[in-house]
Design a protein around this nucleic acid. Sequence first.
RNA 1: UCCCCGGUAGCUCAGUCGGUAGAGCAGGUGGCUGUUAACCACUUUGUCGGCGGUUCGAGUCCGUCCCGGGGAGCCA
Length: 432
Amino acid sequence: MTNLTYIEDLSAKAGQEVTLQGWLYNKRSSGKVRFLILRDGTGLVQSVMVKGKIPEADFAAFDRLTQESSLWVTGLVRAEPRAPGGYELDLTSVHPWHLAQDYPIAPKEHGVDFLLNHRHLWLRSPRQQAILRVRDEIIRACRDFFGERRFILVDTPIFTPTACEGTTTLFETDYFGDRKAYLTQSGQLYLEAAAMALGKVYCFGPTFRAEKSKTRRHLTEFWMLETEIAFAELEDIMALAEALICAIIQRVLATRVKELTALERPLGPLEAIQPPFPRLSYTAALERLAAGGHQVPWGEDLGAPEESFLSESFDRPVLIHRYPKNCKAFYMKPDPGDPRTVLCVDVLAPEGVGEIVGGSQREDDLEALLERLEEHHLPREPLEWYLDLRRYGSVPHSGFGLGLERLVAWICGLHHVREAIPFPRLMDRLAP
RNA sequence: UCCCCGGUAGCUCAGUCGGUAGAGCAGGUGGCUGUUAACCACUUUGUCGGCGGUUCGAGUCCGUCCCGGGGAGCCA
């Protein structure tokens, strides 16, 4: 009976009578010709009703329909060059399901605070739908990338007994009244254990940071893709990160141009993302910074202005490797060629986005790792299980983590990571 | 935690030198046989973020607190 269809499939149904289910995006009237613009999550389509060619009750339903009312309609699919999607619907019946109350988000301009307070409704807007579709595609591209390379997905815990690295602020929670638990800031240490079991592994899950950061690059809850590979050295994971980023960009360009266009994201800069990516040692980066007027003493970490300068210097991501030891985490392995530095890499995205990947070769020697723990004033006892990995068949191994929202923000050309996640958690925003 | 900017109608904002509150949009009513954030006419809507102070008089000046935005620090 009913030819139930999604809007994105209308082009295959030209000339047929179909049924659409969705919501009213907008309506316009010119008296006896009335237009309903419908959305169903797959697209927008304009439908037309003419007085006398549709039952009078259906024609009159137009007056009651408010923005975002839910409804189902039937009509004839007709090619229409003037329509944005190329097709229009000549309505034969209109059935409201629910008449929406005054919808707060008009198809007009709104401020950020207002929109974030209505995030549950803001998601319905075409722009937010486009972002979420790109995010979905990026996630699938990541899973495919690792799956095709025979990596095994290993889920790491979200409750942890201690900090993975003692330095950062963790969200603390009560654990059955007598203990504290912390929300994870990284799955890495657990992933190292998994790599010793399965060889090549990755995890993908939420990460929590209680830092009081108020910038367009920070969320308190974000999603991180992490990988860990037994027998891999720094150069191996640098090549892997490069291949991963290229694969993701290629996938999005192959499947989500419509969404990128809706976001007014220029495609040129994305099409330029091809291997090889430039590689700069920290020391070489300092020289480049000095030449650009940024004086940084050797041994100091790079700040946000320096990262922006470097990322804007190239038309593709740049890999900065071998930072000074004191800037980085305890588990990173010193460079045998220069023990003042560690075998680590940060990937900075172009267009001023900044760091999207951080990784390193891990210290695999038990004694050296114990020394690093002492240098960082970290307690040994809670990490004994991690030290076991260096007692039972230790091997060289390396891995990296990729911040999903920063990647989504870069690819979509967003100004702020808060639009790159469905329900952003920020320092001063926990709802909706 | 620090620095900068902001808070006026449901939304986006204007409000001059301190003189008693405005526009557009949304909502409502009517009109229009091809509209594209449709248009035209008419029309409802205010704890000017809170508290205190100066003043004959405060949206406007001062103090303080709250909330939001941008940035820094921090941050695989």
